[in-house]
Amino acid sequence: MEQLLQQLVNGITVGSVYALVALGYTMVYGILRLINFAHGEMFMLGSYFALTLIVSTRVGVLQLVPNVLLGLLLVFLFSMGLVSTVGVVVERVAYRPLRRSTRLAPIVSALGASLFIQNAVMLTYGTQYQVFPEGLLPTTVWRVFGVEVTLMRVIVLAISLGLMAALYAFVQKTPLGTAIRATALDHDAARLMGIDVDRIILTVFLIGPALGAAGGIMVGLYYRQINFTMGWTYGLKAFTAAIMGGIGNIPGAMVGGLLLGILETLGAGYISTGWKDAFAFVILIAILILRPTGLLGERVAEKT
């Protein structure tokens, strides 16, 4: 029982990161009907930018900002901002010119952009694993009903749930959020209502990469080891989560991410660790066979 609870806590932590990254996929897909294969690289870039900022400003050893938490907050904001910029540039260069083209061309363009970013990072930082400095945050552990909860876990959960709640409120309550939902439904009708569709796409490419970057930073802080190839694996799983929840559906991505994290951790814990990465896809295939539009998905019209 305690083991099960422990696995659940671990699963929710990983799952909340998947959910954050999945939001980027689902928002872009909702608006453009495009699988943004470069989104995994945004996650990876976030991690690398944060590492560079932490090492160069020596957060925690306290040269510039005395308070660790304040320092980390600044690291988050700066890295997310930088990654958003990259996201917008990728959209401008690799996706915008292909918006009216065949369906296959943007896929290849996205894969090319992803390969480019990955190798740019590899050439800058080298092929070896990069390690986050030790002892940034105190390793406090609480025991709740025999379950170990570390401070890092609490922070990861708090940040991801906070960001998700903020995004949900933004999309549901603000005028810009309403415009995003309208554009996802129908570009032309949205344009007739006076919505600047290009601006909406820009907004989505600002928010998505920023959320992905936040996920990447947290994975870096949590596991402390990062590699330039991690965008592929996390990206693929987050995309799986987005599809599980029903792609284009924002609450769906959150549910899908958490569910994937939990099922994957349980599978690794009770069945086999070696097959851990395969569980995600087995679950995905099962869900799509039984419910082809995902758990919360309504039918998303195909782009013609």
Binding site: A94, A105, V108, G112, L115, F116, L123
Partner: peptide, 11 residues
């Protein structure tokens, strides 16, 4: 790196 850029450019 060049390969990725070339894929985008080709498309």
């Amino acid at each position: 790196l060049v390969f990725g850029a070339a894929m985008v450019a080709m498309m």
